[in-house]
Design a protein around this nucleic acid. Sequence first.
DNA 1: CATGAATGTTAGTGACACTAACGTTCGTGG
DNA 2: CCACGAACGTTAGTGTCACTAACATTCATG
Lengths: 154, 154
Amino acid sequence: MESWHGHDEAQVPGRLQGLPSRLLNLAAGYAQRLVGDRLATLDSRKWHYATLAALEEFGPDSQSGLSDRTGIYRSDLVATINDLTARGLVVRAPDPDDRRRNAITLTDEGRRHLKRLDVLLADAEAEFLAPLSPADRAELTRLLKLLVAHHSNP
Amino acid sequence: MESWHGHDEAQVPGRLQGLPSRLLNLAAGYAQRLVGDRLATLDSRKWHYATLAALEEFGPDSQSGLSDRTGIYRSDLVATINDLTARGLVVRAPDPDDRRRNAITLTDEGRRHLKRLDVLLADAEAEFLAPLSPADRAELTRLLKLLVAHHSNP
DNA sequence: CATGAATGTTAGTGACACTAACGTTCGTGG
DNA sequence: CCACGAACGTTAGTGTCACTAACATTCATG
């Protein structure tokens, strides 16, 4: 993750120019890049963060529970948990109450790592929102919530 | 492109819940899906549309010119132009003035196809923005433009 | 006219969203 | 009580998109 396509911004087709869906994609791209780059400084990604955050907030959970909470597909969660266990941030143990399940538990080191990621994310968020006033940020959040709410439950 | 992860929206970690960058990614995801699905009904994708639109607006162009205008990498543009020529929407011919270049030209059929895609896109855009009032849409566009402008030229 | 830059091309990487299929384990209805 | 279907974890694979590296051809400039 180094450069990107958005720096020079040559003459762009006019019909695309002001399209909210295009602007949204552009903006989301910048946000994603900022966040991704920050997390990468600690060899982490969105998935790692989301998983650790869910574990801290809701306590130990099965993989399918984590999949629900994070939106990560259970198939992709396998590799994520592999990573996190390999780094000692999480423990995967068979659930004695339901032997189909794995109980995923946050370790102390995992909790510490999550705290470090939190700092990074707050930083990225601040940098991303820099051009907006507090009122603008609230407004943006409101509008995005409307859109997300409308399209998330059909 | 059929289902997606956003329908049930289970209990999500609170620290992620209201984060503009997360909301932005979610919203962009919905928009992308809407647009992508619409375009897919005519076996097209974002790249095809962007290329055709750029050609109509700026006239025949080289591939690297198109790359600049659309933001598509020249390496990816090769396949895009391959597709479009295979479908007769575009003609690729060596540029006599500069034999390194290919001159890409929109065909009549390409123009017709673009018109069809335009309808689809307008439709997707309308559906995406359905929950917002005209004032809200203007506001969203304004905020997104601020963000994009700030992050596109460092 | 030699050197370096631009152009198109091929190949490949990596993140992410998503599907299909399979074995194991559990819960339930008959 | 047990057969059957559902849930769980896992493996493998697909498709889109952004992006890099390397190469041959052609052009432009010094």
